[in-house]
């Protein structure tokens, strides 16, 4: 029993696209890279509300939520997701954001508790490395 318990504990990651923009190439590239790194990636598809993303994160019991936002609405969407995560008691879920985020906004998001903000041109290896470091203990 202990044998297999140690052997199988993949990191679970939710990759979601909140808001209205329809460009999910970046999200798919990241989802694919995380899968190829041995993680279980739940991809929710386009046009998700913060409520839907947080409910999915709860049901899927993920270690990490990755939000891809290209619409410029990150200053409203991300705080809302974080607020809802806390409201559900999901304080141990790490939130990462990818997209086109100006540096001063990124700083604000980090202050809110976002563990990483990845801009265009980020190597997928870096995202994989960082996601691994967010894995939960148990």
């Amino acid at each position: 029993m202990t044998e297999s318990a140690n052997a199988t504990r993949p990191i679970r990651v939710l990759v979601g696209k909140p808001g209205l923009d329809g460009h999910d190439r970046g999200a798919k590239v990241v989802a694919r890279a995380l899968r190829d790194a041995g993680m279980e990636v739940i991809y929710t598809g386009l046009h998700q509300t913060p409520e839907e993303i947080v409910e999915a994160a709860l049901q899927e019991d993920v270690d990490v939520v990755g939000l891809s936002i290209l619409s410029g609405a990150h200053n409203t969407l991300v705080p809302r997701v974080i607020e809802l995560l806390h409201a559900q008691g999901l304080d141990d879920v790490h939130v990462m954001v990818g997209g086109i985020i100006p540096e001063e906004d990124a700083e604000e998001l980090r202050k809110l508790g976002v563990v990483a903000v990845f801009g265009p041109g980020t190597e997928t290896e870096e995202i994989v490395r960082f996601t691994r470091s967010c894995a939960r203990e148990a």
Partner: peptide
């Protein structure tokens, strides 16, 4: 790799 891409939620309505 043991990884998986789980995409069944895409078809689910909220």
């Amino acid at each position: 790799t043991g990884g998986a891409l789980l995409g069944d939620r895409i078809r689910m309505e909220g």
